[in-house]
Amino acid sequence: MSGARGQPGDAAQQKLARMAVTQRVERGSRVALEARDEPSAPRPVLALHGESTSPAALWRSLWRSRELLAILARKEFQVRYRRASLGLMWAVGLPLLQSLVMAVIFSKVAHIRAAPHYVVFVLAGMTAFITFSAALGPGSTAIVDGSDLSSRVYFPRLLLPMMQVATNLYGYVITLAILLALCPVLHVGLGLRTLLLIPATVLLVAVTAGFCLLSSALHVYFRDIRYMVAAALMLWMYVTPIVYPPGDVPGLLRGVLDANPMTAVVDLFHMATVGYGGPSELTVVVGVLWAVGLLVVATAVHCRFDRVFADLL
């Protein structure tokens, strides 16, 4: 007989056989190797009945993973700009540049009836919208893209899209600080109305999170979502009153603007900075309804599919 034909793994088995390291450990001899750090911490109990998760259980595991979310978001933010020499500059520079280009093109080239403080007007709208689109792009594919992690260990899958939202908040805070610093320079007075930025931010985060959570779950089943989101974002910017004041938009576009949850967000940003172009009651109600509705639906979807996503990755 000749021509060695080993079965896969033979070599490793033979190696293992030579090692005399594996005496059976007597059961019951509980040797305390080192004191556990948290003797009083309750041991988590995993109880799965069927594929879906109850909202309470999902919330509990989300709460337990809050530190993980912070770590993941921070690392993601660092990784994004790590290999770039200008690093963080890009996180802020790109939105600023984009806003400036828009402001110049629409006011100087396209001769849009320039509103007062047009640069700040555009910048404020863009700050909000870029945060939204920068999170929704990678956020909608987050669960599939994170399959490396999620096929090997459990954590609530909605952490993955949430991580994209949280990551973009870093850039958002910096851009917002620059925007507010620019306001006095560009002769835009700030006042009490600037506090509108707080509800504006809350609404922005809620709408962004809602879309990210829902689209990332759908994307696991329908991989077209990736392209649909890209196409939608392209159009979305123009049906949001970023470069034009919403005042006298006629007909069909008016209806689209009213139904767009980002209208309320962007209008609030306008109101908080340049002090005009504030949202109507209708758009605020629509924005809040969208945010609440999306979050409710997205939570329901994640409850149903949280422990099933891994099967389809």
């Binding site: 109990v45 995993l46 109880a47 799965l48 009945h49 069927g50 594929e51 879906s52 998760t53 999620s150 096929s151 090997r152 260990v153 459990y154 949280d306 422990r307 099933v308 891994a310 099967d311």
Partner: peptide
């Protein structure tokens, strides 16, 4: 806990 059972329970 990576995936949930279709029937029965895991504790």
């Amino acid at each position: 806990g990576i995936t949930g059972p279709t029937e029965g329970s895991v504790t």
